[in-house]
Write a protein that binds this DNA or RNA. Structure first.
Lengths: 198, 198
DNA sequence: CCTGAAACGCCTCCGTT
DNA sequence: AACGGAGGCGTTTCAGG
């Protein structure tokens, strides 16, 4: 059983708004019992839809708040490794990557302290077009998408997952949700090939 | 009394990692009692350091997950109104603004659905340099800054706030934290002038 | 500003439907 | 899959240092 319904969407909406809201309060809101909400939340965490419960902090109020905004444009094929390299730096908090090769990073240090990392990356990506600026304002309005539909997406073929969905546990303990047994076989094979290569 | 010490920093660190962690667990971790943690968290919320408790969601798993990355470069003076205009749209979840006039937005709709909003904004900011792409990857590693120091910053003059700090309540119910009575008078005056202008 | 005790509320396991 | 009850935590209030 792998599905994702309106109840899940409502729970996510309420938790995005206030992640410390009690399960009982959520239960009242959506017309279910607290254990149901608890079970749903557990499932959403296990599936990886909820990556973590966290805070939105106003860093402009803190002296640790010097932050930098990095925007780079590279060849689309180079975007993923660049994004990974940026994300690996401990000062980098956020990385966004567009399909066209735009990579945006938000770091929790000032621009001069970032220089070391960016110097290395500039050499590794000589064709890249870089900009680095002190970050002066961030706004965040957490919500799910505004489009009507919702559901889970197959990580193999991209189709929407229905009641035929399969929840595959690959050997590292990671889980993947796929739409059918064909995609499940696909992903299992991929992981086995990866394991053999080691 | 307005201060921000190592205890606050530790509490924020632990909550960034898991915002549903119990106050008692945090208390054990930092060697204080649960009521102390509860009081500190209340204070951090009231001060606006904690803007909200929320979730990090993996949108790539949801069919609502089509997202767009917008990067605009405008005159620095135009960046703030542009950032506000973007943030006002309900599909826009994140807005980042650099001091040099770079504005980055992350929207929870695909690029074609964004067209209406961006068409209007392109007309309003004819000198802007725009790019819009489907967003294909986001990573987020929540943490406080990596720099050593911490503390609260005066919203008037930018100095670090010490035990002389003042917590001013301006008439709208909003609060500001400033470093001294001079800055407190400044901000009160500013708000009064604003009220008179209406 | 902190603590401990106590009261109250919330979460989760379990048995049932 | 979901519910109600029960036991055990978690949170908050309060008195006292």
């Amino acid at each position: 059983m792998v599905e994702f319904d309106d109840l899940d969407r409502q729970i996510l909406d309420l938790l995005l708004e206030d992640a410390r809201r009690s399960f009982r309060e959520i239960a009242d809101e959506i017309g279910r019992s607290a254990p149901t909400v608890s079970n749903r939340v557990d499932r959403l965490r296990e599936l990886g839809v909820i990556r973590r419960f966290t805070l939105d902090i106003d860093r402009s109020m803190l002296t640790t708040g010097e932050q930098s905004l990095v925007v780079a444009r590279v060849q689309p094929s180079a975007a993923e490794p660049l994004a990974d390299a940026l994300a690996d730096d401990e000062a980098v908090e956020h990385v966004l990557r567009g399909v066209g090769g735009t990579v945006v990073a938000k770091a929790t240090v000032d621009t001069s302290t970032l220089d070391g990392l960016l110097g290395d990356l500039s050499e590794a990506y000589p064709d890249a077009d870089w900009s680095v600026e002190p970050l002066v304002g961030t706004r965040w309005d957490p919500h799910l998408g505004v489009t009507g539909g919702f559901g889970l997406v197959c990580t193999v073929c991209g189709n929407t997952i229905t009641e035929d969905g399969v929840d595959v546990e690959v050997e590292s303990g990671n889980r993947h949700v796929v739409c059918c047994s064909t995609c499940a076989a696909d992903i299992t094979e991929q992981y086995e090939r990866l394991a053999d290569a080691e």
